[in-house]
Design a protein around this nucleic acid. Structure first.
Length: 893
DNA sequence: GCGCGCGGCCTTTTT
DNA sequence: GGCCGCGCGC
């Protein structure tokens, strides 16, 4: 560390640090004692309090930056906090550990994991890797994976780990005779499923250990193990971290709770030095936790709400400070939130209030189906921007489950509104990216069987199941891993000549890549390039004619760019560092900064939305079974969690809250009638102004208005156009309304808007190609990122700060890749770079096509009228239709 | 060993 | 509607 550059904390006076705070906030900032719980209601300024408290500890209590450990739940939250701290106390903030539980543990394990058998180059398995491994194990143990899915077994293993239950313990209790790592070990008496779980758990951990790998949950559990088994290490961290602050404490699980206790040395009975300032140099660390039990929404992944509820019992001399004043929302919104959450039994009563005034009413809308819900929302967004001066980035659409995004996206695309989707399939989960990453993993850590096996025959090189079995058998017999088996190929018996040759080729490929990586460890981007080139991954995709493969090539190129950025923004970049940052990205890390105007509407799940705020929020899919989710409705405690989720959703809104529902929603391709969500009833009647309350379905139920037409919902067009005049300006094609009720995808119609001018609006099609072209170059250094972060990344060299920069760069890329994925999914058109999706010249009499609604058909006539070309198609029993090529949702077969 | 086509099952929510 | 796994034919 370059000490003399700026070693000092910018001195902040007490007045400065307390300025603008209310009484409770100020008290929390100054609190002088070992254990503090800040029970912070939604929007009550907790991040502000947390950062000011850290500054207070530094400038008023004599703490050193290096003594601070601040834990957040996402990388983004960590980056933001670090940024705020840097503003407050100067660049010295970089010396603090501000990170997620997971990154902090990686850092600890990289340094000290050797003491529990982890070599420092260990791999971090994501959920997909872990599932692969479980599946491999199940197959070998002859477990019926239909009945016990790897997914469910893994969930169980995850539960054990979150509760710090070791595999030894499970094995001892349920299958003492089972020997992990011994081939042919079968599960004994199989009357009890616990036996199965115990065996798989044990075997899974054995394989992780031989692969020098850990999974997400291990990061926490093994760190606890380290601290508990190695007193020297424990002592080191206890002396180091004198102040521990944990955000979103209500979402911690048992393992994380214990981790905090262990790091803080709460139970080791050491006394604080008499007369010391603050926490002093020994004795228990000072612990500050911030959270809101009403926002606990992660019980499903092990979060234990009791951690926060029982904080005062758990930590001696604890103090609780309540923050109830909300600085975010109108009183109307808070009243709705309070009313909903008040129905949860057994909570400590807490009532949010605001000085901001009542504001406007909550707006309700009942649509006939999901498509119309989306259309109405799109119209409303256009109106908000046009008439009320909101920006697109002021608006967020939220939903319970990712699958709901589709109909909303389609509506936004059709209305030509720019949007960004957060979450869903992540960049690093795409197959081609995952393949490339598997190469990198296997190079960095050859013992990593899961990843090595993944790429053995990717791209296809004639090494199938037989060859793989040769390797795994040999590996098992010699108690070693697949790479070692491959490495000693010459000693392997019974290998057919042809297979031996292919295996040797693969071995040499990997040896070459390993050597290259060793020589260029500081240049991850070059390693990526080498991998893409030498492995044949790129070549395989490039020679393909599948238009989707072009996107895949782009994604791989993107991966290389991401590596290049990592390299530029990280002082001591390594391949492992790159792998690490990619392993721990979260959905919310893709989100842009609050102050950044992306010019796009944001779509995300309610879970992802936690911690965010928007002037305008649409809570969509307010139906029984959708939200609350059907799987959470039977069980009271799960229903309580849904209610907290509703509370989270409502309190995201600052000025205007919309609640919308659909009377019919397609689930697994089947239309289902949906009743209004109980949460709508929980909001006091007088707070909601319904723009449309009855749906066509409700009307039919009431026994009137049915005209028996085969348009599913006769009332649809009328209700919809009389409702909102803003639709008048939109084109209304005859087929559009009908298609909207068909429940089928209408991506096809996207391309149909494609006069070339509309393609350059930044949400797909043509713009993507050109934008990508620009990115492909080496223009990163000159970007605004380069300049704004240059100063911090050039100072000091702890990996924590680089993590921050990387994350910020990466989320940007992920964002772009999402936008790209969007366009890729929707525009086969773009692939041929034609201005219009379908070209009339491509259609001839007798061609077979597929229509989104009518299904398969045969072309009987083609009329070339330029932009207005029409084809006539015979759909058999569905009749003969004339279709405007420009708008028809069809695909040539 | 590979590729295609069919059928079953499904989705909560995520570090 | 989509993914994944399996079975068949080459």
């Amino acid at each position: 560390m370059q000490m003399n550059e700026q070693p000092e904390v910018i001195a902040r006076s007490a007045g400065e640090l307390l300025g603008g705070l209310n009484e409770q906030q100020a008290e929390a900032v100054q609190y002088d004692g070992p254990a503090l719980l800040i029970a912070a209601g939604a929007g009550s300024g907790k991040t502000r309090v947390l950062t000011r408290r850290i500054a207070w500890l530094l400038s008023q209590t004599g703490a050193w930056p290096s003594q601070i450990l601040a834990i957040t739940f996402t990388n983004k939250a960590a980056a933001e906090m670090k940024e705020r701290l840097t503003t407050l106390i100067g660049p010295v903030a970089q010396r603090m550990w501000v990170s997620t539980f997971h990154s902090a543990c990686v850092r600890i394990l990289r340094r000290d994991g050797g003491k529990i058998g982890l070599k420092s180059g260990f791999s971090i398995y994501d959920t997909a890797d872990s599932q692969r491994l479980v599946k491999i194990i199940c197959t070998e143990l002859n477990i019926d994976v239909k009945r016990y899915t790897p997914r469910s077994i893994l969930a169980r293993i995850s539960d054990y780990k979150n509760s710090l239950i070791g595999w030894q313990e499970r094995l001892k209790q349920y299958a003492p005779q089972f020997k992990p790592g011994v081939r042919g070990s079968q599960i004994g008496s199989f009357g009890d499923v616990e036996v199965l779980y115990a065996c798989v758990y044990a075997e899974y951990q054995y394989r992780l250990a031989t692969a020098n790998a850990v999974d997400f949950d291990d990061l926490i559990m093994r760190t606890v193990e380290l601290l508990r088994t190695d007193p020297v290490t424990a002592e080191y961290y206890r002396r180091k971290f004198r102040y521990i602050l944990v955000d979103e404490y209500q979402d911690t699980n048992h393992a994380q709770y214990v981790l905090v206790r262990e790091l803080g040395g709460v139970d080791c009975g050491q006394q604080r030095e008499p007369g010391a300032r603050g926490a002093g140099r020994m004795g228990p660390a000072w612990i500050t936790v911030v959270g809101d039990s009403d926002q606990s929404i992660y019980a499903f992944r092990g979060a234990d709400i009791r951690n926060i509820q029982e904080f005062e019992k758990d930590f001696p001399n604890a103090r609780t400070i309540l923050l109830e004043q909300n600085y975010r929302s109108t009183q109307t919104i808070l009243n709705a939130a309070n009313a909903v959450i008040a129905l949860n039994p057994g909570r400590k009563p807490k009532k949010l209030w605001t000085a901001l005034g009542d504001g406007s009413k909550i707006i309700g809308y009942a649509a006939d189906n999901a498509q119309q819900e989306g259309q109405w929302i799109a119209g409303e967004i256009a109106r908000l921007v046009r008439e009320e001066g909101f920006r697109y980035s002021d608006i967020a659409l939220m939903y319970r489950a990712n699958a709901q995004s589709r109909s909303l996206e389609e509506a936004l695309i059709n209305a030509r509104l720019p949007y960004q989707l957060v979450g869903g399939t992540k960049f690093y989960e795409r197959k081609e990216v995952k393949d490339a990453m598997a190469y990198l993993q296997a190079i960095a850590n050859p013992a990593d069987d899961v990843n090595l096996r993944r790429i053995l025959n990717v791209p296809k090189r004639g090494l199938g199941a037989r060859a793989e079995a040769l390797l795994t058998t040999f590996a098992a017999e010699h108690q070693t891993n697949v790479w070692s088996a491959l490495d000693s190929l010459d000693a392997m018996p019974n290998v057919p000549t042809r297979t031996a040759k292919l295996l040797a080729q693969f071995r040499d490929l990997m040896r070459g890549l390993q050597a290259f990586a060793a020589e260029n460890d500081g240049k991850p981007s070059e390693i990526v390039a080498e991998v893409l080139e030498k492995s044949g991954l790129l070549a395989e995709l490039k020679k393909s004619t599948d238009p989707q493969d072009m996107t895949r090539v782009d994604n791989l190129s993107q991966l290389q760019s991401t590596a290049a950025e990592f390299e530029q923004n990280t002082p001591d970049a390594t391949l492992n560092g790159f792998l690490e940052t990619t392993a721990l990205v979260a959905d919310s890390d893709q989100l842009p900064d609050e102050d950044e105007d992306t010019g796009k509407v944001t779509l995300m799940t309610l879970h992802t939305a936690k911690g965010l705020e928007y002037p305008v929020v649409f809570l969509t899919g307010m139906e029984q079974g959708t939200f609350p989710h059907s799987r959470a409705m039977e069980n009271e405690s799960e229903l309580e969690e849904e209610r907290r989720l509703a509370y989270v959703g409502i309190t995201r809104a600052r000025q205007i809250l919309y609640v919308t529902r659909a009377a019919v929603r397609a689930q697994w391709g089947q239309a289902a009638e949906m009743l209004p969500s109980q949460f709508l009833d929980d909001i006091p009647e007088n707070l909601i102004e319904w723009k449309r309350r009855e749906t066509g379905v409700d009307a039919l139920r009431g026994g009137w208005g049915s005209n028996g037409s085969d348009d599913e919902f006769g009332g649809f067009e009328g209700g919809y156009s009389s409702e909102s005049s803003s639709y008048g300006s939109r084109p209304r094609w005859g087929s559009a309304a009908k298609r909207a009720t068909s429940g089928r995808s209408s991506y096809g119609s996207y391309g149909s808007y494609g006069s070339s001018s509309s393609r350059d609006r930044g949400y797909g099609g043509g713009s993507y190609g050109s934008k990508y072209g620009a990115r492909g170059g080496s223009s990163y250094g000159g970007s605004s990122y380069g300049s704004s972060y240059g100063s911090s990344s050039s100072r000091g060299s702890s990996s924590g700060q680089s993590g921050r920069v990387t994350t910020r760069r990466m989320k940007k890329d992920l964002l772009d890749s999402l936008t790209k994925a969007k366009s890729a999914a929707s525009a086969k058109a773009a692939a041929t770079s034609q201005p219009s999706r379908l070209n009339v010249a491509d259609f001839h009499e007798g061609d077979r096509i597929s229509h989104d609604q009518y299904g398969l058909g045969k072309v009987v006539a083609v009329e070339d009228k330029g932009r207005n070309s029409v084809i006539t198609v015979d759909f058999g029993s569905d009749g003969v239709k004339r279709l405007l090529l420009r708008v028809a949702p069809i695909e040539k077969l």
